[in-house]
Design a protein around this nucleic acid. Sequence first.
DNA 1: CTGTGGATTTGCT
DNA 2: GCAAATCCACAGG
Length: 222
Amino acid sequence: MRGFPGHLLPRAFFEASPEMVAPRLLGKLLVHRIGTGLLAGRIVEVEAYLGPHNDPPDPAAHAHRGLTPRNQVLFGPAGHAYVYTIYGRYFCMNISCEIEGQAGCVLLRALEPVAGADRMAANRGLDAGAPVRMLASGPSRLCQAMSLTRISHNGLDIASAASPLEVRDDGFTPGEVMVTARIGIKHAVDWPLRFALAGHSCVSGPRGRTATAFVPSKIPSY
DNA sequence: CTGTGGATTTGCT
DNA sequence: GCAAATCCACAGG
């Protein structure tokens, strides 16, 4: 990844509870190296899903009922990709958190394209001139745009410099962050675990959604 | 702008 | 068997 801005986020960044990691991921870069090419986007929207060791447990999380073949990555070390199939035809991309043995993850819901936007559009079946917000606004659109699949990417260590998939910090400082309930779930529908850059055009969902001001406190640097 | 329904695989009960 | 952390097309106001 030499030549690409910023530095690789270390595993320690992810070894905390998802509700702490999630807002800290806003403004970071998701980078996917494909052959000689590069796809990258700034993370503008995320959701936290808590492990079953929490009290009360998070009934919306895949890890809610313990370890299964599908969710085993979530119980492994932090900083690994959890990519799963949803509704038969799409994928969603998460990053595992906590220490090994404890589950928890952050769902990546939207990116602002930074590199390879034309290729993202092609991946999404759109013209090169398509509106930027159509490229990676939504968890499965994000996977389509970034060419992420369960078979190829589930379990990848994204905190390794050898990985084709990384999260990098280029020094971007987020402005106001909004917090809302998570989208598309049927349980714990009002837990405030969705975080997004306020007013950013690439955030998914209806605009003008109810938002609360939120200021992350004591964010360590990595 | 809003609301509705279909596509289609996977994992767990 | 059925529910699911989605997206898209299409109908109607």
